[in-house]
Design a protein around this nucleic acid. Sequence first.
DNA 1: AGTATTGGCGATTATTCTTCGGCAGAAAGG
DNA 2: CCTTTCTGCCGAAGAATAATCGCCAATACT
Lengths: 175, 175
Amino acid sequence: MAKNTDGLRQGRRQQPVIDAFDRRILAALAADSSQSYARLGEAVGLSAPAVHERVRRLRQSGAIKGVHAALDGAALGKPLLAFVHVEAAGWGKSERLMQVLQFPEVEEMHSVAGDASVLFKVRTGSPQALEAFLAQIHAVPGVTGTRSYIALSTYLERPVQAGVTDSWPDMPMPE
Amino acid sequence: MAKNTDGLRQGRRQQPVIDAFDRRILAALAADSSQSYARLGEAVGLSAPAVHERVRRLRQSGAIKGVHAALDGAALGKPLLAFVHVEAAGWGKSERLMQVLQFPEVEEMHSVAGDASVLFKVRTGSPQALEAFLAQIHAVPGVTGTRSYIALSTYLERPVQAGVTDSWPDMPMPE
DNA sequence: AGTATTGGCGATTATTCTTCGGCAGAAAGG
DNA sequence: CCTTTCTGCCGAAGAATAATCGCCAATACT
């Protein structure tokens, strides 16, 4: 019989499929990643080794990027959360702008489509620290301005969820 | 001797202090929460049981809110990340608006100071799904408009960091 | 000084992770 | 249609880790 001589995988599962079991495992891990495989298996209807194998695969495929502790910003002395929109002349992403990613106050940076070039999520200990961050931004060549949104209350803040809404409710369009 | 009869703690550590050891532990756990206590202890300079005890305390005090798996949005079929600003007449936080938190696409919701009332972070599978979400928002009474920022590239996205910058570099203020 | 309390360490036990062999079900191939 | 091949799950065993305990040093309070 012809053995697999061309080095390719046995012709299956090129792009790993995420099935219903995987979805449930991912949802459970996103909610709480500190539970045992036995408990996970019980929750999704599989044995512990089966869950272990699936998690290993999900991890390798990149669906699970890591597992992190969720810290409380206020408890750590960083009670001030802000979203900073940066307007830049020319193209926003500069080497110089990437420097600010080294500050632990910066949690997110995206380039966006809209009336801003780059968007930062920043958590600082004080308005002064936010001001210092903004000074850093304004010191970047090409930056023409910033617009900041200070979070007053956070009603939800959670990691990427595994679920997908496939049937959005028909909203009652108010005339 | 007078025994503690008034039900209060022995007059110490009312508000738990986070020392340098805790900081390092938290930083390590925020980066990767799947490492063993032995490794953590080695990294921060403590024994495994000491780290275990500190983590237990940090967890109880609320500094550690939980541990979650970081999932890849694109791998899960949600490649579209958007920040949605909502403008509302009157006060933004309504019971009706809280309903949308049930959608797994919604990852964050804050009320903010700035030229918007509420800010959402939403991750959807398609522009259509984002449109459906916006329709939900617009269906909320009092909402006068939304402004959406579509993420083109994400350069950084990480959980709350333990570190705090205490000496911001003096920026070269360009003339 | 004396006393009480806290927090760290080493050692032990309990739990969990991880791997292994075997088996059943589903695709390819004759 | 039957065989072959492969995948994925399970139960069980071994390895690693988590969790607990008693003891000791350092600190704070009387």
